[in-house]
């Protein structure tokens, strides 16, 4: 049973069709969830008693932050699978996951900065979470730059897989150390609203948005994967059949 699965994962046409089927349901679901979550969060939740309406950016900021971190693990795990089992799909998934994850991280930083202006009076504060996010962005950029630097793309993927694995082992240590660093230097005036103090009426739409962005991430990953599949196998018969219609 497991082995037939493994075999199928080595077959590009099968993956292309299966991911197509999956997207047919997942993409509408993701869009509905994102719209529903945004409307709920932006229009139907009470304003924060201290931050007023500006806090509502958390409905984007928090989900993309969560997913950007998870995205690094997706990238690293895909890289590990391609290193160990030489699965082509895993290699492509890793390559696709890098730009999406980097974009999410950048979005998290951007929304954080926009949120910071009304809250702290400045766009940038070296807060523990923001700092960790910046480090994460540089980890993504490193993988990116390494891939670009190699002429031989097969070797580039392998090198990136190794680098992202090293990063994966390091990420928990980075997060822990940045937290500790912040507690050491924390200015007394700035305090983060912890998850425990958030009101349920604000929390449920946030939860919905997190699920929605996860769905969206998966869709983007699958779409990127399909595109890469078509690109790399452009000359094969199944791609021609798939693109030029049934015959």
């Amino acid at each position: 049973m497991a082995w037939t699965w493994f075999h199928r994962l080595g077959s590009s046409p099968w993956i292309y069709r299966f991911s197509g089927q999956l997207l047919r349901y997942l993409l509408p679901l993701a869009i509905v969830l994102v719209v529903a979550g945004s409307v709920w969060g932006l229009a139907f939740t009470p304003p924060d008693f201290r931050q007023g309406n500006s806090y509502r950016i958390i409905y984007i900021h928090v989900p993309v932050s969560v997913v950007s971190l998870a995205g690094y693990y997706v990238m690293a795990i895909a890289g590990a699978i391609s290193l160990i089992w030489r699965l082509k799909v895993a290699d492509m998934a890793m390559r696709v996951a890098a730009p999406i994850g980097a974009a999410m991280t950048f979005l998290a930083l951007l929304t954080g900065a926009v949120w910071g202006k009304p809250t702290w009076g400045t766009y940038w504060v070296w807060d523990a979470r923001i700092t960790s996010m910046v480090v994460l962005l540089f980890l993504y950029l490193g993988v990116f730059a390494l891939y670009e630097a190699y002429d031989n793309k097969a070797l580039a993927s392998k090198a990136c897989a190794i680098l992202s694995l090293v990063g994966t082992v390091n990420i928990p240590i980075i997060y822990k150390s940045v937290d500790w660093w912040y507690s050491l230097h924390q200015p007394a005036s700035i305090k983060f609203t912890g998850g425990s103090t958030i009101d349920p009426s604000m929390f449920y739409p946030l939860l919905l948005m997190i699920v929605a962005v996860y769905c969206l991430y998966t869709c983007l990953l699958l779409m990127g994967l399909r595109l890469t599949l078509l690109e790399t196998e452009a000359k094969t018969a199944w791609v021609k059949k798939e693109i030029l219609g049934e015959s």
Binding site: F138, G142, G167, N170, I174, S177, V178, W180, W181
Partner: peptide, 13 residues
């Protein structure tokens, strides 16, 4: 770019 982000914990500690 590759190694400095990885060395953040050592610097902090």
């Amino acid at each position: 770019l590759l190694i400095l982000p990885l060395e953040v914990p050592v610097l902090i500690l």
